[in-house]
Design a binder for these strands. Sequence first.
DNA 1: ATAAAGTCTATTACTTAAATAGACTTTATG
DNA 2: CATAAAGTCTATTTAAGTAATAGACTTTAT
Lengths: 166, 166
Amino acid sequence: MKISQKGLYAIQALMMLARHHQQGAIKIRDIAYEEVLPEKFLELILLELKNARVVDSARGAKGGYRLRRDPEDIRLSEIIRLIDGPLAPFGDAEQLRELIDRDIAHRALYQVFLDVRDAAARILDHTTLADLIVDQSPRAGKGGKRNKNQKTASILPMVVGGTKGD
Amino acid sequence: MKISQKGLYAIQALMMLARHHQQGAIKIRDIAYEEVLPEKFLELILLELKNARVVDSARGAKGGYRLRRDPEDIRLSEIIRLIDGPLAPFGDAEQLRELIDRDIAHRALYQVFLDVRDAAARILDHTTLADLIVDQSPRAGKGGKRNKNQKTASILPMVVGGTKGD
DNA sequence: ATAAAGTCTATTACTTAAATAGACTTTATG
DNA sequence: CATAAAGTCTATTTAAGTAATAGACTTTAT
């Protein structure tokens, strides 16, 4: 699975909508401005998210976009699959299972690919927009208030991270 | 991280060389035949693997390719990085760490990306060519002989695998 | 009526992926 | 020492994917 610029933009746009979830319709222009995204490109992305029923739109003056579901009900895996396709590093999970069944010589390899996709799926299925957003209001961070239901971002001791470049 | 056809071909070619590791130089043609790979394309891939010092070649009659190291010393992560780049789903690990440090608004998102790359790295760093190859000799599978040092392929109960398509 | 917004279709420029082709170089060996 | 067998190198092609940009069209609040 590779996340494209477009995929990143989609996630950023949805994070912005999640932050402003109480505030009714948000204009494309405002999303583009706040997240620093190319407006015309963002337009197409939002249309795609709309067709996938992740967001809703209102046309005309006072129009704009909003999330169709609460932030805690929109998973990162869903967005990534939508924009960038399967989570597997090669093919998709179904194909891989098929190959594991039929291609004896390469079975072990495809099983590793499937393990990688399962590991990614576990993480991305369990992460929602609500887990990602931080309060960006002016006096944020001063009080002890924590984001409701937010899993404190993992911050692993980078056990494997001995690898420098990647 | 996305594994391309080329990346898959590279891994397959190296698996073939691992299977024939005792047998001296192996011709491109034989690799291509046994693994069913486009010969001319494979040629370029092997050249790349050679420049990266993963394989060695001999020119002229009786020439061919061989692994430069034992199969248990060639990790899947190394091959994939070489052919398809960083394991991270976006950018590379170093970039992600930088972004986690500097981009407060998107810190949690980039941390998730880094978690995904770490999960992939853990799996791919621990899998070597020796783990992937199966004995393909005529009477293979009849005796109780197991592949020396082979981690029995994981075969997870696909906990997350509720997801059908991918 | 008008301005503000989303919608739709097309086009562009660029890059990458996946090969294919052919001439060139090296080496074993009869 | 000629020759055939092999790897090496450079170029080209074709197709697809990526990241936009442009502009006309439609809907809606006021």
